[in-house]
Design a protein around this nucleic acid. Sequence first.
DNA 1: TTTTTTGCAAAACCTTTGCAGTTGG
DNA 2: CCAACTGCAAAGGTTTTGCAAAAAA
Lengths: 157, 157
Amino acid sequence: MTVSHAGPALPVHDLDAAIAAMRSHGLRASAARRIVLEALFAAAGPVSAEQIAGGVAGRVPAGDLASTYRNLETLEHIGIVRHVHLGHGPGRYTLAYRAGREYLVCERCEEVREVEPRELDDVRTVIRTTFGLEPAFAHFPIVGLCTTCREEPSDDG
Amino acid sequence: MTVSHAGPALPVHDLDAAIAAMRSHGLRASAARRIVLEALFAAAGPVSAEQIAGGVAGRVPAGDLASTYRNLETLEHIGIVRHVHLGHGPGRYTLAYRAGREYLVCERCEEVREVEPRELDDVRTVIRTTFGLEPAFAHFPIVGLCTTCREEPSDDG
DNA sequence: TTTTTTGCAAAACCTTTGCAGTTGG
DNA sequence: CCAACTGCAAAGGTTTTGCAAAAAA
């Protein structure tokens, strides 16, 4: 399996701090990387590599998709960025300082609810003590059916 | 998004019942479909389409992968089969009568723990009452780190 | 015989990799 | 200047689709 090569989350809250963090890791603050970061700072929530490459939230496009993936991976490796798997579809990327947040997703309407880890503490504790597994809801969220979608007839009748 | 077109789970416990169910839905009990079902009955847990097509558990190969996907989708549609997303990697298929079980997966060592829904009732209830979301752990399991993997040093140092 | 299903080929989708040329420090 | 980085092209892994040939009923 492809393990997430994410370092410890860095509390990087702005572009300058991100650039400093890159430099301190011997990385270059290239134009493409700045644009990726700007897109992430501008985004309302987790966004796909394709959205970033194509220009999210009215931002300058980051250009090549392969390079965008490489840059996201690099930034994730040094702890500035995280990604989350919201059900089907491509992985979504966020700044790590926001990624402490955890997600609950409706698998039908795709509505994403972002919550503070504390709100899932009880759930996490029960699962850890009962099964020995420490859930990673920031990476693989809780997926299910929201109230609205449960009330709608299924598409199978 | 590609919604799961799964009908209500049918309590189909053997090949004959599966064939009867297919017929009752106007489907043909083709050789390829029988082989897919035999592979699923023989499998110890959820298996990928590729494993089924290639011959799981010493079974006759089901042949073409595209047809296998089509057949799994068809069987899922009539409620005989279900699939689950165990972290990264391909979807895994099971017979629906076994799929009431829910899963917890370690994202590092990929160990899969299969539990009866009852064991997750408390967790499910807390999440439903707190967030309004009815979790579908049989389709998107709880993913995290198992005890062993938590104790090991990460591959980042 | 008629309708469904198959197998093959091709494509779609997400992501990674190789490489030659460009750029940042 | 030189290592790091980019863009492009290609490929890898998973899943879907189109279509003529084959099989089930």
